[in-house]
Design a protein around this nucleic acid. Structure first.
Length: 469
RNA sequence: GGCGGCGUGGCCAAGUGGUCUAAGGCGAAGGUCUGCAAAACCUUUAUUCGUCGGUUCGAAUCCGACCGCUGCCUCCA
């Protein structure tokens, strides 16, 4: 398995520290607002990456932190006139709802910054003792000049950075690049006691502290959006490695942005759609297919038209899945078990996904599979149970298990389990009779009326099936 | 100013030295099946990969120049 490592800017063979265990950390959201679809892409693709690593047989411990104390949360709390913990609580709940709606696997752990103040303080103390941090009147900063490889991850040259025009001016810092480890509390701000007085942690330190606590001093994979490479991840490296003298992360993975009209989607530009807005219009599976059809590192242009295209494509997969599910329920046997090389498709799917999670290619393999299975279905009067089982299993492992673009359990039912289904089946019997009598006016009317109610009919050799939206 | 990324058919998007006259999806056109639909299947839809040069037996893939778009260097997924 090859993984593109930001550190080396190359694809590298993936070698976990303690196989089959794999430790992964992703920088989660700062909970001051609803996440937008660009944020969602990052988390969703990290979910696909995690699922594929699990598919390969690894035992993944996946930590996604939640930043629940931060300037923006405080600002929002002032705006909403509620305590910052309430703002955080509200948007944590919303975030987890959105993740569930997008059908992400829950992280193994979602550590909160405010639950780790003790660890954070200890880490800052260590940095202070080792001479990497300095305290100015209750504000503690990281002294970038003390960490000789600073800038290595992002490929930045410190001198070039200093000449840049956009570095925050802060009178207290020795060097403009130095960053906050501990922020002194202003009047009325939420704060915790510390050796430097009341205050709260800086943004970067929580990830170092939580990653170390939950996954260890050196971890396999650390992920995040492209924009976190600098300064956030650079700072994490500086903090963690200065404190532990160990290599912090073996594989740095960064995920591409969502663009709108060639421009980065961002809250500051205001050109965003929230995840829940999009989820109100499109099913999670369509959104997932849309994302997975573009490589995780590249930019992705977003529009509803493009999403609609993905939704259309998804139907192709879902239609087959539905057919397979119905066939399985029918449990009809045919003496003929058509020749079909399932192994070939698994091998191809894995070959593509092994190459730095090339999900667009992985999806192409699935489409190819769908087409060829459909061909078999078209050529045979009835299907062998074994064939149906294997075909369903392939989709279940790849499209459902890894990509999450399909969920068999949510597929339209056909068995007369509910009253609703019984009534529809009754109408179908009447319609079948009408068709037999060549009363097409009536049969079409039944179909149209049902369609108006969200029930789609499909006639086939073996009878009529229906799906409910 | 420093450091990156990108430019592939009508649209989206893989591919990064030969299997590429370029995967897959959407869209479009025609056909098969069907009473008609839907679904499915078949066929067609880039001799060409921003432009111009170069390296090579061979390039979308490597090098150079240029054009266009874009990201980071400030909070940001």
């Amino acid at each position: 398995m090859l993984i593109y490592n930001t550190q080396s800017r190359k694809k590298e063979e993936f070698k976990p520290i303690n196989p089959p265990k794999v430790s992964m950390y992703i920088c989660g959201p700062t909970v001051y607002n609803y996440i937008h679809i660009g944020n969602a892409r990052t988390f969703l693709m990290s979910d696909v990456i995690r699922r594929y690593i699990e598919y390969k047989g690894y035992d993944v411990k996946f930590a996604m932190n939640i930043t629940d104390i931060d300037d923006k949360i405080i600002r929002q709390s002032i705006e909403e006139n509620v305590p910052s913990s309430e703002v955080a609580g509200k948007y944590i709940k919303a975030f987890l709802e959105d993740m569930d709606s997008l059908k992400l696997k829950r992280a193994t752990i979602n550590p909160y910054a405010t639950d780790h103040i003790g660890e954070i303080i200890d880490l800052i103390k260590t940095l202070e003792e080792k001479g990497f941090a300095y305290n100015i009147d209750g504000n503690v900063f990281y002294d970038v000049s003390k960490f000789k490889t600073y800038g290595q991850l992002s490929g930045k040259n410190i001198d070039d950075l200093e000449s840049g025009a956009r570095i925050e001016i802060n009178e207290m810092k020795k060097n403009p690049l130095d960053f906050s480890l501990w922020k002194k509390a202003k009047e009325g701000e939420p704060s915790w006691d510390s050796p430097w007085g009341k205050g709260r942690p800086g943004w970067h330190i929580e990830c170092s502290a939580m990653s170390c606590k939950h996954l260890g001093e050196t971890i396999d994979i650390h992920m995040g959006g492209n924009d976190l490479i600098f300064p956030h991840h650079e700072n994490e490296v500086a903090q963690s490695e200065a404190a532990t003298d160990k290599h912090f992360v073996n594989y740095w993975m960064h995920l591409g942005f969502v663009n709108i009209n060639e421009e980065k989607m961002s809250k500051s530009l205001g050109n965003f759609f929230t995840a829940r807005e999009v989820l109100a219009k499109f099913p999670a599976e369509a959104i997932r297919l849309f994302f997975v059809q573009t490589h995780y590192r590249g930019p992705l242009s977003f529009s509803e038209e493009l999403l609609s295209g993905a939704q259309k494509g998804l139907e192709k997969i879902t239609n087959l899945a539905e057919t397979l599910k119905l066939e399985e329920e029918k449990n009809s046997t045919s003496s003929v078990n058509p020749e079909f090389d399932f192994e070939k498709y698994y091998a191809e799917f894995e070959k593509e996904m092994d190459d730095d999670f090339n999900s667009p290619k992985g999806v192409a393999v699935i489409f190819d599979f769908v087409k060829n299975v459909n061909k078999v279905i078209a050529d045979n009067e009835s299907l062998h149970v074994e064939f149906v089982k294997k075909a369903k299993e392939f989709l279940s492992k790849t499209a459902e298990g890894v990509l999450g673009i399909l969920h068999f359990d949510d597929l339209g039912k056909s068995k007369g389990a509910s009253l609703e289904d019984e009534l529809i089946n009754l109408l179908l019997r009447l319609r079948a009779q009408a068709k037999e009598d060549k009363n097409y006016k009536l049969s079409d009317e039944i179909r149209d009326q049902l369609s108006g109610l969200g029930v789609q009919l499909k006639d086939s050799k073996t009878g009529t099936t229906f799906t409910i939206n």
